[in-house]
């Protein structure tokens, strides 16, 4: 029996690539946000249809909404159970969610205005998802800023370089 390590660090890193690669980590966020946005848009268009729809059209709406919800569920499972979201991932995910929320709000509000029905629910839904996304963005930036501060303390650097993702200017020296 060989007592030497069979699994080298490099092999292990290869096996861990789904959690080590930032783009792979963000796949779950893309599925979650895209699925939710699609489901909200489809559901909103379906609900504000002025006339009764044919059976096949209703079926198509239902299938599309279900497919979007399935993607959202898969994304939620990935994000909560399979892949970690590190500080930079959270910032990117937050902005992605905010952009998708605003785009979804615009779509459902325009549809509601054109059809003259369901404006209040559309505005309420848009406000809620946008507010939630904005809170996530702020929290992600706060957490990342705290970690960057700690990193600077540990590396003993004085004035930090400007970080475009922080949205704040670095403190000025004398």
């Amino acid at each position: 029996m060989n007592d030497e390590p069979n699994l080298s660090a490099e092999e292990l890193i290869g096996r861990l690539s789904p959690v080590l690669s930032p783009w792979r980590r963000l796949r779950g966020v893309a599925a979650l946000v895209g699925g939710l946005a699609g489901a909200v848009c489809a559901g909103s268009l379906w609900a504000t249809e002025p006339a009764a729809l044919p059976g096949r059209t209703r079926l198509a709406f239902a299938v599309f909404t279900l497919v979007c919800l399935a993607w959202a569920g898969y994304g939620a499972w990935l994000v909560t159970r399979r892949t970690p979201l590190l500080a930079l991932d959270r910032v990117i995910a937050g902005w992605f969610a905010l952009a998708a929320s605003i785009a979804t709000t615009v779509v459902i509000v325009v549809a509601a205005v054109q059809r003259g029905a369901g404006l209040a629910p559309a505005l309420a839904t848009g406000a809620v998802v946008t507010a939630v996304s904005a809170v996530l963005v702020v929290r992600a930036h706060v957490r990342r800023a705290a970690l960057l501060r700690r990193k600077r303390e540990l590396t003993g650097r004085g004035a930090p370089p400007a970080d475009p993702l922080d949205g704040t200017d670095p403190p000025r020296g004398r």
Partner: peptide
Amino acid sequence: TDELLIVRCQLGEH
């Protein structure tokens, strides 16, 4: 230090 390495990991540095 380990702490610096962990902080960099938590930041998401590959």
